[in-house]
């Protein structure tokens, strides 16, 4: 199955697949952001592939590491084919200035919350998403907590004996 997927994608998207490697047992493709939805659609619809289950969408912030040259943010899509029992990962690197990528909600309804979570915690925009709003963090929280430059702070709890003081935030 591994060779089949590799051949299948390379013959159709040759230049847009930057590299293929093996991440601790799982086949991984680093692809260009433009072709993501095309690749997913063809993997979903082709009978010999049948990647019907979008297992997970997640993101990594590679700030100040050697991966940053390729792009600071990495979005990882895990696809699973139940009938062929094969799991692959698609990785896309996005620039720090404008981390934007196409939404997969037209293909998988399940992508909706997964993308909202990535937007909420990592701040990656998904174009074409029907409702890209916060999902886990509080409405008044600014910023995206899973970014590595998100300031870690500690807020002094207010009790009766210090409630007159202005709220103190230790950075």
């Amino acid at each position: 199955m591994r060779d089949k997927v590799s051949q299948f994608l390379n013959s159709r998207f040759g230049d847009n697949i930057i590299r293929e490697d093996d991440q601790f047992g799982y086949q991984t493709f680093v692809i260009k952001a433009e072709v993501l939805s095309d690749i997913c659609r063809i993997l979903y619809e082709t009978d010999s592939m049948m990647f019907k289950l979008l297992s997970d969408i997640t993101s990594v912030d590679w700030l100040e590491t050697k991966f940053e040259e390729e792009g600071r943010f990495e979005v990882v899509y895990t696809l699973y084919s139940i009938s062929k029992n094969h799991r692959i990962m698609l990785r896309v690197f996005l620039s720090a200035e404008d981390p934007t990528i196409e939404s997969l909600t037209t293909l998988w309804e399940g992508a909706n919350w997964l993308e909202r979570e990535v937007w909420d915690l990592m701040g990656i925009k998904f174009t074409g998403h029907p409702e890209l709003t916060k999902i886990l963090t509080a409405d008044e929280l600014e910023g995206h907590p899973l970014r590595r430059d998100f300031p870690l702070t500690y807020e002094v709890p207010q009790f009766s004996w210090n409630k007159e003081d202005p709220p103190e935030v230790i950075r």
């Binding site: 297992s55 997970d56 997640t58 990594v60 912030d61 590679w62 590491t65 991966f67 895990t78």
Partner: peptide, 16 residues
């Protein structure tokens, strides 16, 4: 899903 940057702390831990 654990992404490692080669240090002794994970760069990112994602729970599905």
């Amino acid at each position: 899903y654990i992404a490692s940057d080669g240090t002794n702390r994970p760069r990112r831990v994602r729970v599905r």
